[in-house]
Structure formats: structure tokens, C-alpha cells
Amino acid sequence: MTLFTEEVLVIIKGIPYGRVMSYGQVARLAGNTRGARQVVRILHSMSEKYKLPWHRIINSKGKISITDKRYAAIQRELLISEGVEVFEDGSVNISTYGM
């Protein structure tokens, strides 16, 4: 496992209940300003194994970016269950719920 991957795992696990971060924010904090897509791949392949709070990651526009409607609905419901307000278009107020 690369150092970047290890850092991404630590950062994602550290996102508090009721808060969100973007893929790019996670990448920057892990040391790669251009690593947002790598964060996506890490989430896709390691969320279950490492019990990552994958639902707390949104895109840089403050929206749920999962294209599969079923998983987007699951993400939406998980965020709402943590007290995060998610609008009909899948957006979240980053100034309120962001890190």
C-alpha cells in the first residue's frame, strides 16, 4: 500500500459524524493536489474492507456524484441520518457541513 493510500484511509476515517469532505480535499490533505480520482478508486476498492465512511465524501461542487441511483440514494439517506441536510439535487451546504 502506498503512503498516499494510507493517508487517504486515515483522513477518511477521521471525518466526523455529520460532516463531509470532497475527493479533492482528501487528496490534498494526503499530499497529492491532483489525486481526487485516486481517492475515488481507493473508496471504491477499500471502503468495505476498511469500514470507511464513504458516504461523507462528495464532489467539489458539494454534490453527491455517484451515478448509480440506488447507491446515490443510500449515500443521501446515510448523510441525512447524520443530520446533514441534502437537497433534492443531491447538494450539501459545504459551508455548514464541510471540514
Rank of each mutant, 00 (worst) to 15 (best):
I64C: 07
I74L: 06
K51N: 14
V20D: 00
Q38E: 14
E88C: 00
K61Q: 13
V92R: 09
V92P: 07
E7G: 01
D68G: 07
V84W: 03
L43R: 04
M99F: 11
E85P: 00
E77V: 07
K69M: 09
G35E: 12
F87W: 14
E7I: 01
Y71Q: 12
G90C: 06
E48S: 03
A30S: 12
L3I: 06
I58D: 04
M99H: 10
G31R: 11
V10C: 05
V10L: 01
E85C: 04
N32E: 14
L79A: 11
V86G: 03
V92E: 06
G31I: 10
S91A: 09
H55V: 04
E6P: 01
A27G: 09
G24V: 11
S60N: 09
Y71P: 01
Y23N: 09
K63R: 13
E88S: 10
Q25E: 14
K69D: 07
V92G: 05
I64F: 04
M46P: 00
Q25H: 07
E6L: 11
R56H: 11
E85S: 05
I64K: 13
I66H: 02
E88F: 00
I11D: 01
A72T: 05
E77P: 00
R37M: 10
G14K: 07
A36N: 08
G18W: 08
G35L: 13
R37Y: 11
K51M: 08
